[in-house]
Design a protein around this nucleic acid. Structure first.
Length: 493
RNA sequence: CGGGAUGUAGCUCAGUUUGGCUAGAGCGUCCGCCUUGGGAGCGGAAGGCCGCAGGUUCGAGUCCUGUCAUCCCGACCA
């Protein structure tokens, strides 16, 4: 039987998460507090996320570029809301040389004329570039994305969910009108973020608008996708901001219009998702046996484990494995685990902990019968095992992978639906956020939100977009006033 | 930034209460044999500035002072 090295979700959800990260070999701690080493297994998942998003970003007309890591501190002060939001957590570079202190140590020696901020996000430095790139209406829209690392000196960190340094993509665009910027903001939310999470990561998301209290520092409006984790808490998985003309005014992004001599400020947007998505992935699908990867995202979709005793059997099973891998070709991403120094049982467990969607076993009996055993990760034990002939495998495997993909999405969706409660009173709201999301009519103020956060540790995650809004009118869950919109409350990561 | 805990082998930890001979275990690693359909077994070996600095003492992993770091919980977190 498997050694239990992973804390169960029921016993300690937070520890379970940390155990999965460790046992699946996704990341390692670093000598610097809050920073993280992303190990090859974890980085391979990030590369899959990058590929899927990069394609969608380019398909919607954007191009990649790269902007500097360092930002003059004065840039950050140009947009008042922005500086207020980020100042508490920026890392600052103040010197550029180390000299010996005479005792074997090194001390910073040469102060910079102007301190440099290590980017916590790039609206400022990109706004500065945009101010020079945009002169005419012909220069718009300007549709840029960058893949980069950013630093936010967080006080409390957790692997992938919140780290001092993290990897992300940030899109930055400039447009001629408010409506065009708004359209861009929503297009990213739907066609890039939501599409990728639901169809590739198999994570159902709520798409909605942030309240004034929760929106991005400096934005006109913020939209987000919110996912539910298995403990019923919310994780903001991606954001898309309509920045209005706030940053254009702060950074002088101006253009001359088509039919007039007047100079206008551009309308800009920004949007991003990060390595936090790996945290979302873990908490959406994994179980007490380890990581569970949705097939479309899995860097390796199936592992062939040969089983043998004698040299002859070894030769026969390995040859069969190679033959089957070749027959599958590019229909699935398959790896052969030919390691000779660990037992099949060890391999089974290792690939299970690492979340590989399908395991293919080939032993002497299978060679004789021209079959393999397929085991699916989302259904542990005998229940998920079945025999398939060699001839059927190249078709059966991709079909099984798609079946698992759908099953994972359906399972996550069913879980989420079962943990969203419509609430009509404060008592019901308080009870609902203990175990999941609460949907409520809302007409409260920002102060009312603060009060609920203080008392219930829950915030308004979003005001769901039309598709999820019932329309009509109701009664505010807190104030009893007439309300025209519903919101989702939850505790969040 | 507040509260709690921990720093001893690559990893997880025991030993510290009550100072005392050459600092231990399990896992992992290396070598050999044997094994392989759900984390095998036996034998052998390597591996330590006991976080760092100072102090008390005949003697410090253990007591005292200081310091650094990490982890967990909370507050904060576009």
């Amino acid at each position: 039987m498997a050694k239990q090295t992973i804390t169960t979700r029921e016993k300690d959800y937070s520890q379970w998460y940390l155990d999965i990260v460790k046992e699946a070999d996704l990341s390692d701690y670093s000598p610097v507090r809050g920073c993280m080493v992303i190990k090859p297994t974890g980085y391979a998942i990030w590369e899959m996320i990058q590929q899927g998003l990069d394609k969608r970003i380019k398909d919607t007309g954007h191009v990649n570029a790269y902007f500097p890591l360092f930002i003059p501190v004065s840039f950050l002060t140009k947009e008042a809301q922005h500086v207020e939001g980020f100042a508490p957590e920026v890392a600052v570079v103040t010197h550029h040389r180390l000299e010996s202190d005479g005792k074997g140590g090194l001390v910073p020696a040469a102060p910079l004329d102007e301190p440099l901020v290590v980017r916590p996000t790039s609206e400022a430095i990109i706004g500065d570039s945009f101010s020079r790139w945009v002169q005419s209406w012909r220069d718009l829209p300007l549709l840029i994305n960058q893949w980069a690392n950013v630093v936010r000196w967080e006080l409390r960190t957790r692997p992938f969910l919140r780290t001092a340094e993290f990897l992300w993509q940030e899109g930055h665009t400039a447009h001629t009108t408010h409506d065009e910027a708004e359209e861009e903001t929503l297009k990213i939310l739907h066609e890039v973020y939501s599409d990728f999470l639901e169809n590739v990561m198999a994570i159902p998301v709520f798409k909605g608008q942030k309240t004034e209290k929760e929106k991005f520092a400096g934005a006109l409006r913020t939209y987000a996708i919110e996912a539910m984790m298995q403990d019923g808490k919310a994780l903001q998985a991606g954001t898309s901001h309509n920045l209005g003309q706030n940053f254009a005014k702060a950074f002088e992004i101006k253009f001359q219009g088509q039919n007039q001599n007047e100079i206008e400020y551009a309308w800009t947007t920004s949007w991003g998702v990060s390595t936090r998505l790996i945290g979302a992935l873990i908490m959406a699908h994994s179980d007490d046996d380890g990581l569970v990867l949705p097939p479309r995202l899995a860097p390796t979709q199936a592992v062939i484990v040969p089983i043998y005793k004698t040299d002859d059997e070894k030769a026969a099973t390995l040859a069969a494995a190679e033959q089957l891998k070749a027959a599958i070709g590019d229909k699935a991403r398959v790896k052969i685990d030919a390691r000779d120094n660990v037992t099949p049982g060890f391999k089974f467990n290792e690939w299970e902990v690492k979340g590989i969607p399908v395991r293919i076993e080939i032993g002497p009996r299978d060679v004789a019968n021209q079959t393999v055993v397929l085991g699916r990760r989302d259904r542990p034990g005998k229940e998920g095992k079945r025999f398939v002939s060699w001839a059927e495998l190249p078709e059966a495997l991709p079909a099984l992978l798609e079946e698992i993909q759908t099953a994972l999405y359906d399972r996550a969706k069913a879980f989420r639906d079962a943990h969203v409660t419509d609430v009509a009173s404060y008592a019901e709201l308080a009870a609902a956020v203990e175990t999941g999301f609460a949907r409520a009519w809302w007409a409260g103020s920002r102060e009312d939100e603060d009060k609920i956060q203080l008392e219930l540790k829950a915030t308004i995650r979003c005001i769901p977009l039309e598709a999820d809004q019932p329309g009509g009118e109701g009664v505010c869950v807190l104030t009893g006033q007439p309300a025209t919109q519903q919101v989702l409350f939850a505790r969040s990561y």
